[in-house]
Write a protein that binds this DNA or RNA. Structure first.
Lengths: 242, 242
DNA sequence: ATTGTTCAAATGTTCGTACATTTGCAAATA
DNA sequence: TATTTGCAAATGTACGAACATTTGAACAAT
């Protein structure tokens, strides 16, 4: 492994070291729980001071990637894929942060007639045409979440929109529709045939279903979103302040 | 304002400073966006080194409480992402609202040795004795949720406590331990034998598992809580503002 | 066998220092 | 007057050093 950093780069050393460590700890031995080299050694090896090294490891520890234990050493935290809700568009970021390659298996947009539930939330007549966005996401091993999004006609979003950007960025910048409030409902169910097929699991395996009712600052409905997560692969994480 | 720290305390200086800053930045002038004193000045005022001060501010910055700008200064972050949960102790309220008679099937308290996970969160040695509260709740048709709560020894809660009152009321009034932050994790799993027995369902039926890591305003761990819900009977509802 | 002691290694804490970079503003300049 | 320059103040980066505390293991004493 190439543990090289560039002392004359404009990128701060601690940032370089941080990146390097992110890659380093992907190695199977570290994923399996082996301790990293000691701080003193590692710093010497990298040609930097222990303090600078700790700047990097501190950040990774904050993120929950590393666990340090006084008198023992530093190792990679036991990994669970957590969806961080505190930030809105953090899903891919979370993935990337953990070094998990992230993939869109399918993105599709179409115009459909809305069902009763959506009509009720949007406060529009049943069967009004709305734009529906469908996404299937996962990693190289396969999909692990299936999403559907429906947008209120008022937004004027197009079925030809480029949805590769974060959704809430598109809404805010292009359509001047800030989102301010969302009501979420989470439940667990056994996979139906169609859901199982989409997620490539067996019918009857448990899935986490997360519904999201998104509104703007004036409390007007903006988006309805429903996601089906493979339960085994997911922990839904929420941070609450009061 | 009393900017005093104790150099001979066993509490690390940076932790003391962190606490102190949390209180300091509650002042209206800082909430309104005034810059904190410069690092050099503030460190001198506190009688600590700039590095130590930065250890504290780094953490607060990472938490999103402070914003630092090179060449300018440090101020309190404008409040943006406030993730707020409707249901702190609202479970029974929700039930009552829906006219569902609510029943405690079992309440039990005991002293147990804490496992690794709890030791890690509480930052105490493995197998330290902690108070464990067990609850089984449901309606007249049977149980639908099984809870376990563990309390940090610092709280000094007794195993003979009367837990018929709302938990967070007990903590705040009797034990002067306000709770401020909680991290929740939600996952779905198939019921193990023991869980199935408790909830009177069949082994292999899906259950929603909700873990809650509760901390006080100083971010010190207070309670660990895990609940097993019968998935079919439950929807977990969250309200998020930003 | 059990208990206590010592030791080396690891992370934790804290200091001091030096220089880099960015910012806003005031003074000098065209 | 408008622009540039320079400076002081602020945070950012980086190093080195010293000592504290915790851990696990080896070893010694009971």
């Amino acid at each position: 492994m190439n543990l090289q950093i560039n002392h004359s780069s404009s990128v701060p050393l601690h940032a370089q070291v941080e990146e390097l460590l992110r890659k380093l700890i992907e190695q199977p031995k570290y994923q399996k729980g082996e301790f990293l080299p000691g701080e003193v050694d590692l710093a010497k090896q990298l040609g930097i001071s222990r303090n600078t090294l700790r700047q990097a490891t501190n950040k990774l520890e904050y993120e929950g990637l590393l666990v340090r234990k006084k008198g023992l050493g530093t190792k990679v935290a036991a990994q669970t894929v957590t969806t961080q809700l505190a930030s809105w568009h953090s899903f891919t970021q979370e993935m990337n942060k953990k070094g998990i390659a992230f993939r869109n298996f399918l993105i599709n947009t179409e115009r459909v007639q809305c069902n009763e539930k959506i009509a009720l939330f949007f406060n529009i007549p049943k069967k009004t045409e709305v734009v529906k966005l469908t996404r299937l996401r996962g990693d190289e091993k396969g999909p692990f979440v299936y999403f559907e999004s429906y947008f209120h006609p008022r937004i004027g979003i197009s079925a030809n929109e480029d949805f590769s950007l974060p959704l809430y960025e598109i809404l805010e910048t292009k359509y001047k529709t800030p989102v301010a409030l969302s009501q979420e409902k989470i439940k667990a169910r056994l996979a139906t045939e169609i859901t199982a097929k989409r997620l490539k699991i067996k019918k009857g395996e448990p899935v986490l279903i997360r519904e999201r009712f998104v509104s703007d600052p004036g409390n007007r409905p903006v988006e309805y979103n429903i996601g089906f997560y493979i339960a085994e692969k997911f922990t839904y994480s929420i941070e609450i302040r009061r």
